[in-house]
Design a binder for these strands. Structure first.
Length: 682
DNA sequence: TTAGGGTTAG
């Protein structure tokens, strides 16, 4: 709506305001000028509103909301204003909206040589190379085939999309190349891993600025050629923050933390990307505590750094992997306080984090709070429910998803089949295995076969599982052989177990452990010794078991027979009490899965009784009694729960009337009042 | 009178 000015502002006022525009560069100043222009009624002058839009859309301000509000009040904006607005959307990572605006523009104007580069950049951000090609055709028809900026943005689009031949074709046709064009192409070769061509172009370049050096450096570091990257880094005439970051990121990705930290320590300045690179590097290399530690350090050391989606992507994954619920709640709380939204991939990761940290309730509530639910959100919650043994809910949500018009993909079916296999729903698994192809047109991948095989194995249908593996059209991987071997161990079927183990050992040396467990369960102690000899010879160690439990922010970790804890005395008193109560409840130890051959049954029992999860549960029972006797005991374990511990934990949940939630290496067990959510299939 | 293309995290 335009408000007519009562009195035309004097030209001296307008002149003064325009001069203020050129000296402004902060959002605060922009807003002040915005107010001033409204108060003095200069806003309706196109010279003023145009300058204001330019200010809002240019760096470093780039404020999309204010820009759009100005744009919307201008009647019939000129082509440059449309161009600014499109660029602002692209710069704010809203390229879909930028393209939408571009198609609106087409009904008013013909795009010019300023419009097209922005649109190509948007296409490149969206990986929309087909659309880019179409608009490339349009730009030729409109006579912009030889415009330097149009050509340069096309080189960039094709480079980033990996179409180096096409990029090169445009590049070769250019009569007026500048550094930007060269850099686009060098970067294209570098990011596609063609370091040779990147280097060749770099050598041919008439003049180098820091972009070219950094692109080459990035190419080397991305392809893992860190010495070559370091060489470029040392040789470049002026290093900037971007080159430091690229180098640090290369080292972090390669797991060379020492070199990365050395650079991190010595660099002249840091930005958010520096910190994010380090956090992501720790996270992908499995050093979750350090990733979290860097985040805390950043908050402490860097005043005014506002963590963004990239920060949280690494951080949420790190917390999910650590499986500590209090950390999950803390990071989520931090995000809520700081206005980080849950749509898109962040929502997906949050759901996954809560599931992996043992609170499927919080995972579900995050899912429910997301207004525009995308496929990723549905998949994440379905996978989570499966992990927690809630197959009925997973199946129900799947139906809701389909009814809401979201088309399931391969991942959705992995989640669904996995949920079925975890509770032993073989018939449901079969039916969805069939339906996914017949009704939804989703191609079966090895994971889908894996889930069905697993469901068959968990329910003891080993022969059928074996036949299925032999008939399936894809080559079985180690996960599938491992399912069969685990199933054989559970059903104590030595023949099928050996069959699986023989096919497995080449793919996965750690498979000797379940084989040895199988022999132990079958009482074939000579075979156990043979396998253990073999493991020794090949240098394969059985991963030591541990369990952890968190209390008031502190992680307490136990190994078998642990006596190192500060409250060891109390823990062992509790263990004794547990033992007596279990005996009263009629528990008889299941000693079949004791790996070592111990002659006396009594000793076998003693070994079982000191399993790390029992120590953790004992600690949970004594440490949380005074605070809140009703909160569940949450234990994280690195290995699969053994038969005996599983039945013991069921009994303990009844005896002490406490929910006990155990995460093992593949799923969750919710123990309550004497039974477990896995229905004893695991 | 206002506008465009190239480097690092995800």
């Amino acid at each position: 709506m335009q408000i007519p000015a009562a009195v035309a502002p004097p030209s001296s006022v307008v002149h003064h305001q325009l001069s203020l525009f050129s000296s402004s560069e902060t959002i605060k100043e922009a807003k002040q000028l915005h107010c001033l222009s409204l108060k003095t009624a200069t806003f309706n002058l196109s010279s003023v509103s145009s300058r204001l839009l330019s200010l809002y859309t240019s760096s470093p301000i780039n404020d999309l909301l204010y820009a759009r509000s100005v744009f919307d009040t201008i009647q019939s904006p000129s082509l440059p204003l449309w161009n600014m607005m499109i660029k602002c959307y692209v710069e704010n990572h809203r390229s879909h909206d930028a393209i939408r605006l571009f198609s609106d523009l087409l009904s008013e104007f013909s795009p010019d040589n300023f419009t097209l580069p922005c649109v190509f950049k948007g296409c490149s951000r969206l990986c929309a190379v087909k659309e880019g090609e179409q608009i490339h055709g349009v730009s030729i028809k409109l006579g912009f085939a030889l415009d330097k900026f149009v050509q340069s943005s096309l080189v960039s689009l094709y480079s980033k999309s990996g179409l180096l031949d096409r990029a090169r074709k445009v590049f070769d046709k250019m009569s007026d190349r500048d550094l930007v064009t060269w850099n686009s192409l060098i970067d294209g070769y570098a990011r596609s891993g063609d370091v040779e061509n990147a280097e060749k172009m770099f050598d041919e370049i008439p003049e180098r600025d820091s972009y070219s050096w950094t692109s080459l450096l990035h190419g080397f570091s991305k392809s893992g050629k860190l010495e070559a990257a370091r060489d470029v880094f040392e040789k470049m005439p002026t290093k900037n923050l971007v080159s430091w970051n690229a180098m640090i990121n290369g080292y972090m990705r390669a797991g060379d933390f020492e070199s990365a930290c050395e650079l991190f320590k010595n660099m002249p300045e840091r930005n958010l990307i520096t910190w994010n690179s380090v956090m992501a590097g720790f996270e992908v290399n499995g050093r979750f505590d350090e990733a979290l530690g860097m985040f805390l350090r950043m908050l402490k050391e860097e005043d005014g750094f506002k963590p963004n989606n990239a920060t949280f992507t690494s951080l949420i994954s790190a917390v999910a992997a650590s499986a500590i619920l209090s950390r999950a709640r803390w990071i989520h709380g931090y995000m809520v306080k700081n206005g980080i939204g849950t749509d898109g991939v962040i929502g997906t990761l949050l759901i996954e984090m809560y599931s992996k940290c043992g609170s499927i309730e919080s995972a579900t509530s995050v899912f429910e709070s997301i207004r525009r639910k995308k496929l990723g959100h549905w998949n994440s919650v379905i996978v989570g429910l499966g992990m927690h043994g809630k197959a009925d809910e997973a199946l129900e949500l799947f139906k809701e998803m389909v009814e809401s018009g979201v088309k399931p993909n391969a991942v959705a079916f992995v989640g669904l089949l996995n949920a079925c296999s975890h509770v032993g729903y073989v018939e449901e698994a079969r039916s969805y295995f069939d339906l996914m192809v017949r009704e939804y047109g989703v191609e079966r991948e090895i994971e889908h076969y894996g889930c069905l095989v697993d469901a068959l194995c968990r329910t003891g249908q080993l022969q059928e599982a074996k036949t299925m593996i032999e008939k399936m059209p894809v080559r079985p991987n180690k996960v599938i052989w491992m399912s069969l071997l685990r199933g054989a161990k559970k059903s104590v079927d030595v023949e099928i177990g050996e069959y699986a183990a023989h096919r497995l050992v080449d793919l996965a040396p750690e498979s000797y452990v379940p084989l040895s467990n199988l022999y132990a369960a079958a009482g074939k102690w000579e075979r156990v010794s043979e396998v253990r000899e073999m493991m020794k010879k090949k240098g394969i160690k059985k991963e030591a078991g541990w369990s952890l439990i968190e209390r008031e922010g502190v992680i307490h970790r136990f190994i078998v027979g642990d006596r190192s804890h500060r409250e060891t005395e109390e823990i062992y008193v509790k263990m004794k009490e547990m033992r007596e109560k279990l005996r009263e409840a009629g528990h008889v130890a299941d000693t079949r899965q004791v790996l070592l051959r111990i002659e006396e049954e009594k000793d076998k029992e003693a070994e079982l009784e000191l399993h790390s999860e029992r120590l953790a549960i004992a600690y949970g029972l004594i440490s949380s009694k005074s605070k809140n006797g009703k909160s569940p005991i949450r234990v994280v374990k690195n290995l699969t729960v053994c038969n005996d511990c599983h039945s013991v934990t069921k009994l303990l949940s009844r005896i002490y009337q406490r929910d006990i939630i155990v995460r093992d290496n593949s799923r969750f067990h919710h123990f309550r009042d004497g039974s477990c959510s896995c229905n004893d299939f695991w």
